[in-house]
Design a protein around this nucleic acid. Sequence first.
DNA 1: GACAACATACCAACCGGTCGGTTTCTTCCG
DNA 2: CGGAAGAAACCGACCGGTTGGTATGTTGTC
Lengths: 202, 202
Amino acid sequence: MTETRQAEDTRTRILETALDLFHRGSFKGTSINQVVEQAGITKGALFHYFKGKNELGYAVVDECIRSHINETWVEPLATSVDPIADIKAILDHFDEMIAERPEILQLGCPLNNLAQEMSAQDDAFRERLLGLYRIWETALEKAFRAGIEAGSVRSDADPADAAATIVALLEGCIGMIKVNQSREHMSRIDRGLRLFLDFLRP
Amino acid sequence: MTETRQAEDTRTRILETALDLFHRGSFKGTSINQVVEQAGITKGALFHYFKGKNELGYAVVDECIRSHINETWVEPLATSVDPIADIKAILDHFDEMIAERPEILQLGCPLNNLAQEMSAQDDAFRERLLGLYRIWETALEKAFRAGIEAGSVRSDADPADAAATIVALLEGCIGMIKVNQSREHMSRIDRGLRLFLDFLRP
DNA sequence: GACAACATACCAACCGGTCGGTTTCTTCCG
DNA sequence: CGGAAGAAACCGACCGGTTGGTATGTTGTC
């Protein structure tokens, strides 16, 4: 009846449910019971796979969010020679996603949410989240470096500075949209973001 | 023996303690008992002044944080004709503050912390926090408008767009510093921020 | 029969909030 | 001026519910 490889299935279902609840609410704000209920399992199953709530959180960061960063930022920019155009394409993709599911407008970025909530409280969390930001920034930095070499980015721009600023601006924008919850304010900030990117043109 | 005006004293002590704990931890993460203990009062006193935990949070936003925004952003920019220079001066002031009390490096901005934590969970919170952001952005917008008129800001810049982008970038930067907790990364982001301001020069 | 994969019952600690009561201050009458 | 009356300020024991976590039991598969 049930599959033999149910084991991994249960684990990933717990992880995905936890990510969803952490995203919708927060880490501290969601209880283990909520995860158990929404995942359709029992507490015994959860504690069989994870030592405790924190370990579950770490796994969500290390597995779910990390792969998400890789898919949306690292891979698309890996071979970029025109990062400004490619970053704008990623922004376009976000716009499409929001047009389809407007609810995510108020949920923010899972990485940023967790980082803002936990990095001052738990150093193990902070280090893991910082690791993801480094991966993200490094992908941008490499792309800017390639862009400078290819002539699509102004040569006096510092790739590392630009990468860090883009990440900060992007996370700030997503955060502001979360508070404003208005499409107008989103497009206002979208314009500012693209304006900044254009400043990096030669 | 005790002063006649002890009443207001207790209320403000509760508010300041709550702000401190909400800043250090989070809203949901700090218990009423913690506030009571750190303020050196009792639960009865707290519930005498505030209907509940949420009402306490609202009061912290409406009174403590609002006045802080006014002092650091609205008043200094009220009569500005060179907003770019004046904003940089405010940033310098932040740098000095961080040099004195480096601990605040990892605590972030109280407004942004609360906004990110609560705006998706409680609409009353969101509206109040949004109100503060509007005050902040309006102050910047007016200053940019005055700067354009005075010739200290490029005339093709949209004051409202610039204001919204500055706020987003600033909150994003503070958020990133919270995760990184390194002075180097702070100066890297500081450079990006000032670079963006210079883009707004004529 | 050993072991992973769960399920269930249960726990102490803590949560936000209530409530009856006491103290302290203000007011106003004589 | 004294002193009763009442309101505001404050206390702390207590409540039902929830929290993260555990201990023990059951089940299916090599």
